[in-house]
Design a protein around this nucleic acid. Structure first.
Lengths: 201, 201
DNA sequence: CTATTTACATACATCCATGATTGTATAAAA
DNA sequence: TTTTATACAATCATGGATGTATGTAAATAG
């Protein structure tokens, strides 16, 4: 047993997190055993238990990595001349994140389809701070659009924001469920464009 | 051990299915043990194994019950004078089913949040026949609306149908995740109304 | 250079869910 | 009425996952 340096240890920690994501995706969280994760990472359970308290800890560790891209890239610029275009760009950005960041995409897929929201995981299901912030950003953007007269007449910015929020939830779900070569993925951007165009004055 | 008549046996079968739904909802499918189901149904595992091959069989048995209300109640009348109103009614019907059929609602909640789509369950995730039929119904209805000049100018019925399809997916997800007293539930019907109104000429 | 801690691997004990087997009293068939 | 199949309950054997405890060699602190 050759002892590792601090940097090497941090590396195995990442390997374990990566392996966990792969195994979670393939087996689902519940059927994932720390033995499988260890094997996939090329270590033993001893290493896994050294870096993480248990499977739940490992799960939350993996989840943490995936939230970062969103808070960085999905933003609403308040100074945007056309807030509706800002919303459209934000929605497109979500798709792009899933397209060019496989780890993030896989983690979202795990959270969406490979995880049961009970007991220690049930807290993740209700609106998370990030989700609420996104909804708030949408609402504010639609309000700015309304103030600029860009929103179609008679539309309540709050309602429209909720509508888009719901749309995004469904979009992610269906996008993840569609095959990479399926037309739905290619059509996602068109869907987003139509979605926004419907709201424009 | 007093042997039951055929009718009594059918009754315990239903009791087991009901109990399974409750336990699935509380513990998630993976952590549900047949011992828990048996206890919740007031029987032993012997009875469960008599009526169902294993947990998977029990799961699909429960699922079968829930699909029926939808094919019955969520329909598109081709003779409808206003197809958009027909779509709106269909969407409202989905909400109403979840409101006044707790068993159906609970089953959908299990399928949405208490089940991992791996191995024997992975088939349920891709578009099921029922979902495809619903999408086809939406597309046809929007096409009829377009033919009658009821659809807003410049909208592609196929795209709009996909948009509504995505909307419904997100709507169910968020509706299930919201608390019964939360404003989102009350606002769901308003959301639907706005969603359709946006598409009207 | 010595002591201690780190970063794991290995081994162990425990528990629990599963599926199968067996037992049994009675409904239903003949 | 006798026989057989039914509808379970009770018991058993097995495996597999978990957490912990121990071993260990090298990195690091002093």
């Amino acid at each position: 047993m050759v002892r590792k340096t601090k940097e090497e240890a941090e590396l195995t920690r990442r390997h374990i997190l990566d392996a966990a994501r792969r195994v979670f995706l393939e087996c689902g969280v519940a059927r994932t055993t720390l033995e499988k994760v260890a094997a996939a990472a090329g270590v033993t359970r001893g290493a896994v238990y050294w870096h993480f308290r248990n499977k739940t800890d490992l799960f939350f560790g993996m989840r943490e990595q995936a939230t970062l891209p969103f808070v960085d890239r999905v933003v609403f610029d308040e100074a945007e001349a056309d807030p509706l275009q800002g919303i459209e760009r934000a929605l497109r950005e979500i798709i792009h994140i899933m397209e060019d960041q496989p780890e993030t995409r896989e983690t979202i897929e795990i959270l969406s389809f490979k995880c049961e929201y009970v007991e220690e995981f049930s807290g993740l299901r209700l609106r998370t701070p990030g989700q609420l912030e996104f909804l708030a950003g949408l609402t504010a953007a639609y309000q700015r659009a309304a103030a600029k007269g860009l929103l179609r007449a008679g539309l309540d910015p709050t309602i429209v924001a909720q509508d888009t929020f719901v749309f995004v939830g469904g979009l992610i779900k269906h996008w993840l469920s569609s095959e990479p070569d399926e037309c739905f993925r290619a059509g996602a951007l068109a869907l987003i464009r139509t979605h926004i165009a419907l709201r424009r004055a």
